[in-house]
Design a protein around this nucleic acid. Sequence first.
DNA 1: GGCAAGCTGTTGAGAGCTCAAACAATCAGT
DNA 2: ACTGATTGTTTGAGCTCTCAACAGCTTGCC
Lengths: 159, 159
Amino acid sequence: MSEVRWLNAEEQEIWRIYMTACNELSAHLDRQLRRDSGMPVAYYEILVCLSEAPGRSMRMSRLAELCRSSPSRLSHAVAALEKAGWVSRCLSETDRRGWVAQLTDAGFAALENAAPGHVTAVREHLFDVLSPGQLEALREISQAIFEGLDKAGRTPGPS
Amino acid sequence: MSEVRWLNAEEQEIWRIYMTACNELSAHLDRQLRRDSGMPVAYYEILVCLSEAPGRSMRMSRLAELCRSSPSRLSHAVAALEKAGWVSRCLSETDRRGWVAQLTDAGFAALENAAPGHVTAVREHLFDVLSPGQLEALREISQAIFEGLDKAGRTPGPS
DNA sequence: GGCAAGCTGTTGAGAGCTCAAACAATCAGT
DNA sequence: ACTGATTGTTTGAGCTCTCAACAGCTTGCC
């Protein structure tokens, strides 16, 4: 029940520029991918995960875990990808509750078509504007933030 | 027309952890604000901008600029905020094309109610997990990314 | 004055997300 | 086996965002 520790001007600026840069970068990449390949970044990441899996296929639950997606969100997304002909679904043979998503040939082709533009944009707007030291710092910073969230998530704390 | 410069394993890890940390932090704060105060972060930011403006009111176009929002998005958002009774709109007196959004007393009260929890969450998950040196680095990194995007936006370049 | 061009903001359709609810298959305990 | 809890996934409603199209006002120029 202690007093709120408000942000001073400097802290507000850091907070604001951090969120702005990340959001604008996400938005830029999403527009690029939609325009050039007709898919949002979230769908691209699903296809990438599938393409790297053995047999280009994976259980829905495992896929959701890798993509940091809720089961519901993944279910909707895979339904859309199925409609586009990029993914197919079939019942798991070992556990009849489960479904296995598989990348189709058309899906793999779409991914091969989309990847160069996407990777080029990431390199241009992230790796080309930061020094090696800054990249290492960014990794450590991001890990600290992520671990802080993760810990709080597992231990239902104050916020 | 040169070859694509793919990301190596280390670069992929940095890219991935950066996006994940920022997205998870955003999602965490959005859930907190929705749960405790019934508004998404995007709406909270609109209310903050208005609360700091003279007369707690501002032209829609200026507000969109400050919130880094498209005119359309802001228009939808303010319509929702008006429905909630937190914002009111009236025609500009100087330019009859324009509208002025104003924070209502109920909107100011909602903001006062929401701010402590939000700021506490930001402090807990950002400022409390990073050292002063990391915060300064994060500011510089974010500025570099943002300026890189901004420049590319004004000069229609490769991506 | 009159007209084209530009600015300001809204609207509607559609896409993707979240949340809560549902449902079927499995597991653990008796 | 039977029952209840748990797991894996889907579904539907509602919300917010994007994009493209539109409408009203203003400005500059003849």
